[in-house]
Every structure is written in structure tokens, then in C-alpha cells.
């Protein structure tokens, strides 16, 4: 920066403007975290429920000395919902990544029909997830299109009751998620792939590197940042999976597809034990904060890699 711009006056002006520019965002963050955090901290140590007939501010009358937290530790349904959420994540995100990367590889150079194929492949992103939920609900009926296609392939009538079987229902909701979000991975990874400098590739080729070596030694390192970003976006969003899943199965059969968001939704709107929900929320907040700090570090390191 040139010395002309480093004057104290300009620096002060900058600091003042910076403060003013960040103020709206700070206010919004404070607005959405201060009250919710304090309120949840407060009611999380009580048995308070809207059914109790007390206003939430009077929740202290129902103080239960951290029983919600000990309950939480022993709440099998919560832990299995968490486990399920993680299972969905470790299946869906890598699947979306690998499919997206494979497609991106196929699209990385020009060929006839590329544009139209590309546009079609991005279409699932434009479908509202709730709508996708209804469509997949129908697709997976025992007399529905999926079984119809399977019947054609297998050459005999297939009548799998996808959504009525605990394992198959989980697979069905994962298929829906992969269908909807692979295009995003594809989009991002393709952008990364075509961004790899041509001259380095040429150089490697001249040195006799085969495609696999070129991929692992040049393309992958160059794409590291983008891969991390793509994975981070999907991990963050997939953890909260709700819309499509809830419409397809409502978390069922039983609790077979109940993820964290669905579980909290049910305890909030049906069981109405809000003190307990607050304890769940805070526990998640603590865990996620650790994840966030970790993610920040990763992102920062990823961005430092020279492009």
C-alpha cells in the first residue's frame, strides 16, 4: 500500500466506515443469537413446557437441576438420530462428490452436445426440495415408477415397499438427497477442473506422465481448495437434512429415517418438552462450534495454497 494512503486520517476514516459497514451484520447476528441463547440456557435447566401453563420467564419454578442434560446423555432416540444423521452424511456427501467428480471429468473438454447435457444435469437444483419430496414419495411406492423400472430391468414384477422398510426407506431418502445435490458438486468441481492451468498439464504430458499420474500429481493438488469448499458446503447443509426427507417419510417408518432435525421437530411440535429441546440445542451448539473452529482453520489453510 502506498504511503499516501497510510495517513492516520484515512486510517481513522477506514476504521469508522468499517465499523459502520459491519454493524448491520453484527446486529443481525446478535439479534438471532443473544435472546435465543440466553433463553435456551435458562429453560434448558427446567422442566418447562408450553403445556406447563407458565410463561417461559417463570420457568425457574420448574428447575430440575440439569436433569435434561442427564436425560439427553441417556436418550437412545437422540443418539440414534445423531448416528443416522452422520450415516446419511457419510454416504451422501462422498457419493455426491464422487459422482460429481466423475461427471465433471467427462465434461472437462469440449464435445458435441455438451451445453445441453450440462443444463439438463443441473436441473435438480432448481426443484424445490419439498416438491422433490412428493415426487420421490410417489416414485418409491410399491406400485410406483422405481419398481416399474426395476421390473423392466429384472424381467419380473418387482414390488419392493421402499418406504415401509426401515433400511430401504433410509436408502430411498439418501437417493433423493444424492439426486438433488450431485449437480451442485458437479457444478463446483467442473469449475475447478477447467481452471487447472493447461501449461502445467502439457509439461507433465511431455514428461511422459500417464492420465492417472496427471490427475493425482497436478489436477488434484490444484483442486484441493475447491474440493474442500464443495465438501464443506454439502457437509454443513446435509447435516440439517429435513425438507425432502420429512415429506417422504416423516422420519418413519417408526424412527428409521429420523435425523437430528426431524427428531427436534417432533419433540418440539408433538412432545412439547421445550426445556429438553433447549438442552439438545445447546449440546449441538457446543459440538458444532468446535466443528466450526476446525472448519475455519481448514478453510484458511486451503485458501493459502497458491493457485
Amino acid at each position: 500500500m502506498s504511503t499516501a494512503l497510510a495517513t492516520p486520517a484515512l486510517r481513522d476514516e477506514g476504521a469508522r466506515l468499517g465499523f459502520r459497514l459491519t454493524l448491520p451484520a453484527q446486529i443481525l447476528v446478535l439479534f438471532i443469537s443473544a435472546f435465543p441463547l440466553l433463553m435456551q440456557l435458562y429453560i434448558s435447566v427446567t422442566d418447562w413446557s408450553p403445556l406447563s401453563g407458565l410463561g417461559w420467564w417463570n420457568a425457574w419454578e420448574m428447575w430440575n437441576s440439569f436433569a435434561n442434560y442427564t436425560d439427553l446423555a441417556a436418550d437412545g432416540r437422540f443418539w440414534s438420530a445423531l448416528k443416522r444423521t452422520v450415516i446419511v452424511m457419510v454416504v451422501c456427501v462422498p457419493a455426491e462428490f464422487l459422482l460429481g467428480l466423475a461427471l465433471a471429468t467427462l465434461f472437462a473438454d469440449d464435445f458435441p452436445g455438451k451445453r445441453i447435457f450440462y443444463s439438463i444435469l443441473l436441473m435438480p437444483m432448481m426443484v424445490v426440495p419439498a416438491v422433490a419430496g412428493y415426487m420421490f414419495f410417489m416414485l418409491f411406492q410399491s406400485g410406483g415408477p422405481v419398481n416399474d423400472i426395476l421390473s423392466a430391468i429384472m424381467g419380473g414384477p418387482v414390488t419392493i415397499a421402499w418406504l415401509s422398510d426401515p433400511t430401504l426407506a433410509l436408502i430411498a431418502v439418501m437417493i433423493a438427497d444424492i439426486w438433488q445435490w450431485t449437480p451442485l458438486m458437479f457444478l463446483i468441481l467442473l469449475a475447478g477442473l477447467v481452471g487447472v492451468p493447461q501449461d502445467q498439464i502439457k509439461a507433465a504430458t511431455l514428461l511422459g506422465a500417464n492420465p492417472w499420474q496427471r490427475f493425482t500429481s497436478i489436477v488434484l493438488p490444484k483442486m484441493k481448495t475447491i474440493i474442500i469448499i464443495a465438501l464443506a458446503i454439502r457437509v454443513i447443509e446435509n447435516f440439517k437434512i429435513f425438507d425432502t426427507l420429512y415429506i417422504m417419510t416423516g422420519g418413519g417408518p417408526g424412527v428409521a429415517t429420523e435425523t437430528i432435525s426431524v427428531y427436534i421437530y417432533k419433540v418440539t411440535t408433538q412432545d412439547l418438552i421445550w426445556g429438553y429441546v433447549a438442552a439438545i440445542a445447546l449440546a449441538i451448539l457446543v459440538v458444532l462450534s468446535i466443528v466450526a473452529v476446525f472448519a475455519m482453520k481448514c478453510m484458511a489453510r486451503a485458501r493459502q495454497v497458491p493457485a
Binding site: 414419495f137 411406492q141 418406504l163
Partner: peptide
């Protein structure tokens, strides 16, 4: 009794 219901009964 699920046996004499639609395979999709649960959903």
C-alpha cells in the same frame, strides 16, 4: 395383519 394390506401400508 399387515399381510393383507398394501405393501406401502406404513407410509
Amino acid at each position: 395383519s399387515l399381510a393383507h394390506h398394501s405393501p406401502d401400508a406404513i407410509s
